[in-house]
């Protein structure tokens, strides 16, 4: 391995300039200067699509509007959450297709 020694930094010799405060005016000035050259806002706009359930963290699949409405109405009628219907539908699907299911 190399025996070369790095040089030594003398912190006292380092120069630094006074930078502008992070005021909204300074930030806007910087943004405008950047935008003139195509340096634009590319921050993620947030997650698209349906948000996960705050309770379970699950993201439910999107369905056609009439299916969603029908599931909602049936769940209300039975007094259960929509997930119960989905679980039942999944059990039927597994049964029809000979799939194993944990339930």
């Amino acid at each position: 391995m190399s025996e070369q020694q790095p040089f030594s930094v003398d912190i006292g010799k380092l120069r630094t300039a006074a930078k502008p405060e992070a005021t909204s005016q300074v930030i806007q000035t910087s943004d405008v200067a950047g935008e003139r050259l195509g340096f634009v806002n590319r921050a993620p706009k947030g997650r698209g699509g349906r948000q996960p359930s705050p309770r379970t963290g699950q993201v439910h699949a999107k369905t056609l509007p009439h299916v969603a409405e029908e599931i909602s109405a049936e769940a209300k009628r039975r007094g259960v959450v929509q997930g119960v219907l989905i679980e039942e539908a999944w059990a039927l699907y597994c049964h029809q297709n000979g799939l194993e299911t944990g339930g």
Binding site: S30, A33, E35, F39, N41, R42, A43
Partner: peptide
């Protein structure tokens, strides 16, 4: 301290804002 900022390889506002603070 010496601050070193590694930026993304795109033309973004993040780049222009970081440069505003650079020596």
């Amino acid at each position: 301290k010496i601050v070193i900022v590694d930026l993304e390889g795109v033309a973004s506002r993040l780049v222009s804002r970081a440069i505003s603070q650079a020596d």
